[in-house]
Design a binder for these strands. Structure first.
Lengths: 122, 122
DNA sequence: CAATCGATTAACGTATCGGTTAAATATTTC
DNA sequence: GAAATATTTAACCGATACGTTAATCGATTG
């Protein structure tokens, strides 16, 4: 079961796709303009737009005069959902930080015997 | 220049890593516990933890009694940064939605001549 | 100190990803 | 209606990602 959030994050994982989202955050743009702005070939951009479209992050809109051009704009829902998820996960930090502080103090009190050797893997 | 956000999103793109983050959102856990919880082999989980660690999403903490076990916990910063980014991108939606409404009304008024034929690619 | 344990690294196979060029499709223009 | 334009799809290719099993490493235990 691949959730909507999975698709969203997968779509946003790629740097050029995230750049596209940044650009569309300013204003809607034509597919070609996006390709140019990011120095990408039209086919390459087209495929990126497809995954953004399938994830629902972006939607295609017809140009009023010229039916050849496709204008892309952001869709709010996926990013809102992403935001909610981040908020949910973050919700517990207050507790965790407090718990950690307690633990830190406790181990500070016991540090005479506790300190052995920490491994620093690379 | 791969930004911190790139690393974060890349780390969160994988479904099992996102599940790990969900679990660590509840409470810190041992590497082995995470592997079991997600029915993954220890090596596989270890590698996922490595990318989360490198992205700074997660940090390793030594167990007090048994130095073999490694406890993982969430780090706030990356998700906060992600949250900020989402907010920035979303900031323009008020404007865009309004602009769209204006455009929709305008095109509704002109619909007598404008409606040609929309393409529905699959 | 030998056996076990928790976790990571190494080596390897397969699948997916992202770019490229070439072809296709629809639309506009002259 | 032939040439040009905007974009997508198809076919191909090298790189990267993820899982598996085997080996390694440090720590613990009997």
């Amino acid at each position: 079961m691949s959730t909507a959030l999975d698709q969203t994050l997968d779509a946003l994982a790629d740097p050029v796709r995230r750049a596209v989202v940044d650009l569309l955050g300013e204003e809607p743009r034509r597919a070609g303009a996006l390709a140019q702005a990011l120095s990408l070939s039209p086919p390459a951009m087209s495929r990126h737009l497809r995954v953004l479209r399938r994830a629902g992050v972006v939607e295609e809109q017809a140009h009023e005069d010229d039916a050849r051009v496709r204008i892309y704009r952001l869709r709010p829902e996926p990013l809102q959902e992403l935001r909610s998820w981040v908020d949910e996960v973050s919700a517990f930090w207050g507790d965790q930080l407090e718990a950690f502080r307690v633990h830190a103090e406790a181990s500070a009190r016991t540090k005479t015997k506790a300190t052995k050797k920490a491994r620093r893997p690379r």
